[in-house]
Design a binder for these strands. Sequence first.
DNA 1: ATCGGCTCGCGCAA
DNA 2: TGCGCGAAGCCGAT
Length: 450
Amino acid sequence: MDEIQGERIRALNSRGLQRGEYVLYWMQSSVRTEYNHALEYSVERANALDLPLLVFFGVTDKYPNANLRHYRFLLEGLEEAKGSLEDRGIRMIVQHVSPEMGAIALSGGSAMTVVDVGYTRELKAWRRKVAERIGCPLIGVESNVVVPVEAASIKEEYSAATIRPKIAKKLPLYLVPLRERELQNQSVDFDARASDFSNLGEVLGKLEIDRSVGRAEMFQGGTSSAMKRLDEFIDGRLDDYAEFKNDPTKDVVSNLSPYLHFGHISPLHVALEVDGVDSPGKESFLEELIVRRELAINFVNYNKDYDSFECLPEWCRKTLGEHASDPREYTYSLAEFERAETHDPYWNAAQAEMVMTGKMHGYMRMYWGKKILEWSRGPEEAYRIAVRLNDKYELDGRDPNGYAGVAWCFGKHDRPWKERPVFGKIRYMNDRGLRRKFDADLYVKKVGDL
DNA sequence: ATCGGCTCGCGCAA
DNA sequence: TGCGCGAAGCCGAT
């Protein structure tokens, strides 16, 4: 049985195979050697053509909203991926170049080019450009979802309830292990002007990036860190996950989202590991990892306005519009929010947690977004502020999960509730809810101790 | 502490 | 066409 399901693979142009020196794998979204369908597919094709494989990653310093925090994490993962590819006899080059331009240049020597698939507009635009410009086939492979996006649904889904049965139906087909293929021809003879990755600090120093957001000390990028976290999560915290996942004073969440965002770990690999144990938290975690995460990806894939107010369903925009001029008890600017200068110690703690650690607890993300809606001058401005702060400070920012998370705070994937000022029919949350569910003051103290 | 109402639209049953 | 039901809730009534 071929474990790389056909629905994961798509030709992105209609060029024929070329007489090339190698097969090129343009790595972009799946920076790992384990459980990487694009890599294994590339190895299969290289073996079938009796060609060596060349893996390429382009590091651009122009990626929107990315800063030192994100680049450091990215590069830590890249360094590890490069090493583990070499252990498999696969040559990887990393260049300081705009990824699509680097892929176009290297495709000049390739028989065919393979790329792993991401869903945000920057990644789609790069793929489109490469597909048009190169003379050989460009093949996209989906490895960062359990169920390929269009296999799950061919349209934007309305809610978790509508996508859940569709994913459940397809799951047996895709929740299966991926075998590692051995590359036959390891004689790649390519004199690349590749960046030297022996010194990560030096590479970071060369990039012209925003350095105002510092390293997230708690998170070290790379597959081995991700796997270590996964093991610790399954052994120590999964049992309590269902009961305490919404309690930010407890340490029960997996903290894998930065690794999933940068492709340092495969969601399929995580799902299989968790599925293989007997734990009361299993079902709840798989719901988050697969149904919620892939609902978010469905949203970004099918809704071109995924990072702005315009993405919201009609009833949300209408009700928020009707309350746009309601008096606000408090209003803050982007800068005030950013500096955590609101009157609310819980909100400030959540913001501080994100700025300091690079990852806000999932439950607080809801409260955080709801309050930005409540305390901004209007819903469109609130939307921009929430997306901006999320993208800038979260290690898992600039990701479908983040965009869907912000959208949910404004009513997306949710239902209407009793109408009230400012929110209209959008679900409301307040600080009493936090105190009802957990020791909110302990959370403030915990963040203060960081 | 617990319960019902709030309110829209999807999708299935009929 | 009717009807059940839905990511994380709130609020007032009992």
